[in-house]
Nucleic acid binder design. Structure first.
Lengths: 214, 214
DNA sequence: GTGCGGATTAACTGTCTGGTTAAAACGTAC
DNA sequence: GTACGTTTTAACCAGACAGTTAATCCGCAC
């Protein structure tokens, strides 16, 4: 193939697809080269090593994952609306990008044994958040404000943020388990998604009401 | 080393440790052999292949994971007590076995690309549940009964079960992300665990109260 | 058209690793 | 002690795969 001026970009694009589909270990340099329509040696020519290429890809993909959370957050309105809209947006996003969830899952799993903190997905997440939100956490701040205004009972914003993310993300992460254990369950079906959103808003909204527990 | 009569058991034990630490791909047959104090060829002599050996290990480990849920469920009492005790037991268990969580995480991740359904962790989970609970799901039944008795508002027991597992498990699964994004957070610390349990019981109990939402 | 430097390629290298094999060691029955 | 089946071992094999190299291609300046 004759020289092309967008070779580097084409390689990065192909690498993104292949890493997304097969993961870091499962991906083959040869596969990436073929998908980019390019000789394998060029991958090393432009990116030096598989590891370096992977780092470029992971930054791209983490960007996507972070943005998905951020754009799901409505910027103002009452807390009840925030809850409804965020859950709906975020659950919809998760349902439509199973490969991205899988990728993050793989990466979290491997970050557990990576000794090099800097190359870890956690660090990349933190950097992406800094880039897009100046390091401020939209979810935490929204919850804190709502509590201050008395819209909801006082809660630890971090704890609630973790719970909120948990109930949204978990069904998609644990899908292989859940669907095996509950054969009637189809996490990606419209019915389940709709029911899930409704249940989550009910549960969390009620759970945050100011009235005293008995 | 002279013949020993517990060789097979020693290999399985070593394999469990090594797979737990490094995962299926990361584990080396050589490492397992060394840890068992045995020649590498013996692993194949007794277990035929890495895959077969791994299957034996995964069944053992999934057993542990399932039992952790089951023994965390108190058998009777009011629903509020059930919630408190289950959350406390299960969170404590998760906090003390990070390697097991990591292992399940790895396995769920790889089950996503394993074409062979039978060898998948989901199937193994289902079998383990059948073995220990006759296929009946303790959590779901407990919730359904409580709703029938009017102790809590009517909810879809499956949805709530998913949410309950989600809020318990998520902090430990997402630990590498959470601790990177929130540097002050230490998921395994006593302080966090205690606060988490309290927040979860509050949130879920209030969320399940029969009173009408405004 | 000639020469130069970056881009591209085919072929190769080295290594890692799961799996095999053929022989040796060992216990046991006789 | 000897013959036999099982257990154990050292050495080897083959495939997969990241990475390298040396030669070639190509556009462009002059």
């Amino acid at each position: 193939m004759p020289p092309q001026d967008n070779t580097e970009e084409r390689i990065l694009q192909a690498a993104t697809e292949v890493f997304l589909q097969y993961g870091k270990d499962g991906a083959r340099m040869q596969t990436i080269a073929e998908r980019a329509g390019v000789n394998k040696a060029l991958l090393h020519y432009y990116f030096r090593s598989k590891e370096k290429l992977y780092q470029r890809v992971i930054v791209k993909l983490v960007d996507r994952a972070i943005k998905a959370v951020l754009v799901s957050v409505p910027r103002d309105g009452r807390f009840r609306d925030f809850l409804t809209v965020f859950i709906s947006n975020y659950v919809d996003h998760l349902a439509t990008t199973p490969e991205l969830i899988r990728f993050v899952l793989w990466e979290v799993g491997s970050s557990w044994r990576t000794p090099d903190k800097a190359a870890t997905i956690g660090t990349i997440f933190k950097q992406a958040i800094e880039r897009y939100a100046g390091g401020r956490n939209l979810l935490i701040e929204t919850i804190r404000r709502a509590a201050e205004r008395g819209e909801i009972r006082p809660v630890d914003p971090l704890q609630f943020t973790i719970s909120l993310l948990a109930v949204c993300v978990y069904p998609f992460v644990a899908r292989p388990l859940l669907e095996a254990v509950f054969p009637e369950l189809d996490v990606l079906s419209e019915d389940f998604l709709k029911a899930r959103k409704r249940e989550l808003v009910d549960l969390l909204w009620k759970g945050l009401q100011p009235e005293a527990t008995n």
